[in-house]
């Protein structure tokens, strides 16, 4: 079953600016979909339209089988977790959780039960009578999620909920959000600009750029089969190397060197995409020679910044490093080469 259906949605502002230019996505029951993209790509606008905080200029948003375009946020059966949590600072945690239920006219006994349940689930029971200002960032984050949970929504909406936390806490909360969402079995949309968050959390990733969807797919698909140079460079760290190359007769030429590839359909200029972690420094075999520049040792992996002709190239590897400013032979498997159209950037 589909929880949320977004059909050809546009968002135009009165000043003519277009934030979303025709987006269609379905969110299935219990699925966690991550909207990822650089700032200004329309991901937050999209989320806010689902929440009802922004009006929809064109298109349809259907939640749990009914069109919600013209419904108030409170009538949509959604729950949202904001980046800065937006807890009510003058209310205790308990009141923060209960406020929405109270406004809906839920009987007090049921409010108490739901609040206690959520508090237990999130382990914030001991903070129930404190004010948000007396809590740490992680605890506030939990309260914000609690406020979403007690509403028992059809879908959770997360708007970069972890970006105010420090790196360590962020990793921990990321895992918790995932576990929680799994155990509740509620569908969720999660907006972030952090590709690591997107990869780890998502059942499906929606990569947005400039108000349009670049690619929708499982994290692994998006990583291994990027649909465009934009996706290729956005997902994965360090980003994929994108090299200007010329293809002809099953051979590819970059910076004066050429070697055989399996892609033969198209001749002419293309972009060759190579993931740094799929490149190897080899002692022999077919590959291309690069000039080794700066080396970075990250502990788990080592990055080699090299130059191939006049183009930059990054290689990630965990074995011995070559000498700086020496020459090295780089090889890769044919499956690991990605080909993109030079002008449109789409995958070939």
């Amino acid at each position: 079953m589909t929880t949320l259906r977004i059909k050809d949605v546009f968002k135009r502002y009165p000043n003519g600016a277009e934030a979303v230019k025709g987006v269609s996505v379905d969110v299935e029951d219990g699925e966690l979909v991550v909207f990822v993209g650089p700032s200004g790509c329309g991901k937050s606008t999209m989320l806010r339209m689902v929440a009802g905080l922004e009006s929809v200029t064109e298109g349809e948003i259907e939640l749990a089988g009914r069109v919600v375009n013209d419904l108030e946020p409170a009538e949509r059966n959604i729950a949202m977790v904001f980046q800065n949590y937006a807890l009510y600072p003058h209310m205790s945690v308990r009141k923060n959780l209960a406020y929405g239920l109270k406004n809906r006219g839920t009987p007090q006994a049921e409010i108490d039960r739901k609040v206690d349940e959520a508090a237990k689930l999130l382990q914030i029971g001991e903070f129930l009578d404190r004010k948000p200002s007396q809590l740490s960032g992680g605890q506030r984050q939990r309260v914000a999620m609690g406020r979403a949970i007690v509403r028992d929504p059809a879908i959770f909406l997360f708007d970069e909920p972890l970006s105010n936390l420090d790196a360590k806490l962020r990793n921990q909360m990321r895992l918790e959000i995932k576990k929680l969402q799994r155990s509740l079995g509620t569908a969720a949309i999660y907006v972030t600009h952090d590709q690591v968050e997107a990869m780890t959390l998502a059942d499906r990733i929606v990569v947005l750029n400039n108000g349009l969807i670049e690619q929708v797919g499982k994290p692994h698909e998006v990583y291994s089969q990027p649909a465009s140079t934009f996706v290729a460079s956005f997902i994965g760290a360090p980003p994929m190397n994108l090299l200007d190359a010329t293809l002809s007769d099953g051979r590819i030429e970059i910076g004066g060197q050429s070697f055989a590839v399996q892609q033969t359909q198209k001749a002419g200029p293309i972009k060759l995409g190579l993931r740094p972690e799929r490149l190897q420094v080899a002692s022999g075999g077919e590959g291309f020679r690069v000039e080794v520049g700066v080396l970075e040792d990250l502990g788990a992996t080592r990055l080699i910044h090299a130059r191939l002709g006049d183009q930059d190239l990054t290689i990630a590897q965990d074995s011995e490093l070559p000498e700086p400013s020496s020459e090295a032979l780089i090889t890769f498997r044919h499956d690991d080469a990605h080909f993109f159209d030079a002008s449109s950037g789409r995958r070939i």
């Binding site: 929440a51 108030e72 949202m80 937006a86 406004n103």
Partner: peptide, 14 residues
Amino acid sequence: IPNEMIEAARIDGA
């Protein structure tokens, strides 16, 4: 007062 406050309140049905 951050805008999210009024948005949170709207979602909470106020």
